[in-house]
Every structure is written in C-alpha cells, then in structure tokens.
Nucleic acid binder design. Structure first.
Length: 154
DNA sequence: GCCAACGTTGGC
DNA sequence: GCCAACGTTGGC
C-alpha cells in the first residue's frame, strides 16, 4: 500500500515541534477521539509522514513534519489514574485508546498559518478546513504536495 | 475568555 | 434509536 500522509495536532504549550526536535522521537499519546484513534490504530504505517500542526496557538498552523516510526499500539496513559488522559473505561486486556510513535523530520522555517492555508483555493477540501476539530486526520498526496511547495519550508 | 461546532452520554 | 444535555476543541 502506498504511503499515506497525515496531519497531527498538538498544542504547542503542551508539546511543540521544538519539543519533538529535542526528543527526536515521541509517542503520540492522549488522543481520546474515536476517529483519530482509528486512524492511528488501523491506517498509519511505518514511514508515513505527517504535518505537525500547532493548535490553540497564536497563531495556529503547520509547524513541521514528523514520520511514523512505530505503528498503533495501546496508549498506556489511559491506564494511569494520575495521568491527565486517564480513562477508567479503557481495559488493559482490551484497550480503548491507541497511539503511534513519531520521529522529528523537520521544522518549517516559518509557521504556515491556518489563515494562509485558507487562502489557497486548492486546499479548500482539506479536512483541517472542513472539520476543524479532528486531531489526527488524513491529508491527500495532492494537498501534501501543494503545502510542501510553500516557501515557508525553505 | 467567549462561543460555535461537534462528539459523547444517558434517559426515555 | 432519538435527542437533549453536556463536555471538549480550538479559532478568535
């Protein structure tokens, strides 16, 4: 199966592209939305690339690129009562929540803001612009290419 | 901090 | 299974 492209959101005051750059690798934990969970559990494959999106930021936008280096596995933070993402309904033997591991690929030289993405007419079908709240979402190869060509990467 | 959009829960 | 109430996301 061909490589897929994704967009993954994170609040930069919690975990930013700079944090990923420092740690090199990180689990993408804490996702508690079924649709996003399904993408991570079932469809994200080794080597897939994802735009790292800074949400709830000032401004929000695409800040870099990460690569999937481990496919879906149970999100252990759901089992830890002290963790902010604890979910008492998730069963160890039949976990509800899954995550992948990602590796830093690159940071954009400057943020590609949401406002800027909205101005690009070929991107108006992007899930980001249509269903704003989904925190892990697919990006088409065409959309990926358009965004990769923007001068903010250079 | 506000609030629209939208996902989840639970009573019926 | 419907849908009102409620909670969360995330732009602004």
């Amino acid at each position: 199966m061909a490589m897929r492209y994704w967009l993954m959101k994170s609040e930069p005051n919690v975990f930013s592209i700079e944090d990923l750059k420092k740690s090199k690798v990180s689990p993408w934990d804490g996702v508690r939305n079924y649709q996003a969970r399904n993408y991570m559990r079932d469809q994200m494959k080794l080597g897939d690339l994802a735009f790292f999106y800074h949400s709830n930021a000032n401004p929000s936008g695409i800040a870099g690129i990460a690569k999937v280096i481990r496919e879906g596995y149970p999100d252990h933070t759901a089992f830890d009562p002290k963790n902010i993402h604890y979910d008492p309904k998730s069963d160890l033997k039949k976990p509800t929540w899954f995550m992948v591991d990602v590796e830093f690929v690159k940071a954009a030289r400057s943020l590609i803001t949401l406002e800027r993405l909205k101005e690009i007419s070929e991107l108006k079908e992007m899930l980001l612009l249509r269903h704003g709240r989904l925190s892990v979402q697919p990006v088409t190869a065409k959309q990926w290419k358009i965004i990769k060509k923007l001068p903010e990467w250079r």
